[in-house]
Design a protein around this nucleic acid. Structure first.
Lengths: 211, 211
DNA sequence: GTCTATACACTGATAGAC
DNA sequence: GTCTATCAGTGTATAGAC
């Protein structure tokens, strides 16, 4: 039960409605693409009249931009585990776990990001050129340090990173295909554990980090 | 110079125009998505009036379906190298090379496929449930045989396949991001060789196929 | 802050002259 | 087989009453 109804302040109404709209938009953009997701459809999913969307977000593109930005922040935060680790087994292992967990819990976000990049990043190209470039170079330096310290083979750090992105995001972006190849059923807890083990084992052994 | 102009037969005109339209459609669907690719835009890319597209393909969806089907055939053919191989080093190594070569030469096709699957395969779900299921089980059996023969570690064949798809298609589907992280320049021959070497080394060592 | 009604542009598709 | 003209439907966005 709610407390005796204190009317929500305008600020609270705005926050709540923006959250509703952003959630509905992420889901709808992921399922239907930018062109296929109509403002009417997003409004229906959010449970609001279509005109209200234009009250909170001036244009469809502005709404979409907010969705993509939120996803990008998630990606970056997922790599915190990477940096503090003493070596590749802990660092890359934890990064794989974290990214696969995002693919499992938040597949719509991954799909919107994939779609945006596939269409040549019309909305977030500036982020790719600045934040992503810097982030990538930082992580490559960490990998290179591990190589120099003899903790793993001298693989190409950049392509190792791309392999980590590809293998983890694949389970979100191609989730429908994977589900179809699993008799149409979503993965169980045990199957997700099997995914994590398989990916970590092959990659960590592949870079010579397992003894 | 062409030979003294024999007028093209109706059949030849049809074949030529269908080829023009399918090429333009693949490119446009990949760049703009199904919703973003208008028939007008495809017609402009093909250099034909919009009405002619509807003469050769009854609806936009029929045209799209042809594009996706063509791509699917390419994927399947790419795995011929897989089967005849004596072991994982040759078989999986050649499969990685072949799929990366498709990603390089035919990135638009890979993107259209990815987009179709991300949107829950509204057009080619039947192919996923029949042809792809059979194909996957066949390839898993080959991998299992190599495991039983002691030619590689006892990894999960299914997730190894998914890793092969993910890592190879990533260089097509996320080509724009990869190019941005390469100072905006497309990969050179040497860089593509580096990709092939990196992917093959990590995966083949990761499954215990390298001595 | 909410929501109905509507303006305006554009899309897929077709008719019909050539 | 080609192409202009056009229709019906739908999309984004806004005006204005509440």
């Amino acid at each position: 039960m709610n407390q005796a109804a204190r009317p929500l302040s305008k600020k609270e109404i705005r926050q709540e409605n923006e959250r509703l709209i952003l959630n509905a938009a992420e889901k709808t953009f992921a399922e239907a693409g930018f062109g296929g997701a109509t403002m009417q459809l997003i409004a229906d999913v959010a449970g609001l009249p279509k005109a209200n969307l234009h009250y909170y977000f001036p244009t469809k593109e502005a709404l979409y931009r907010q969705v993509v930005q939120a996803i990008f922040q998630d990606w970056l935060k997922a790599a915190d585990v990477f940096d503090a680790a003493p070596g590749p087994v802990e660092g890359i292992g934890a990064y794989i776990d974290a990214k696969l967990e995002i693919s499992r819990r938040h597949p719509a976000g991954s799909k919107v990001w994939a779609s945006e990049v596939m269409h040549r990043a019309p909305v977030i190209q500036d982020y790719l050129e600045t934040t992503l470039v810097e982030w990538t170079e930082g992580r490559m330096a960490v990998i290179q340090r591990w190589i120099d310290e003899g903790k793993m083979d001298a693989v190409n750090p950049r392509h190792l990173l791309y392999m980590l992105w590809a293998t983890t995001q694949h389970y979100a972006d191609f989730g429908h295909q994977i589900e179809t190849l699993n008799s149409g059923k979503p993965y169980s807890d045990a199957q997700w554990d099997e995914v994590k083990t398989s990916v970590k084992t092959i990659i960590l052994k592949g870079i010579g980090a397992l003894t």
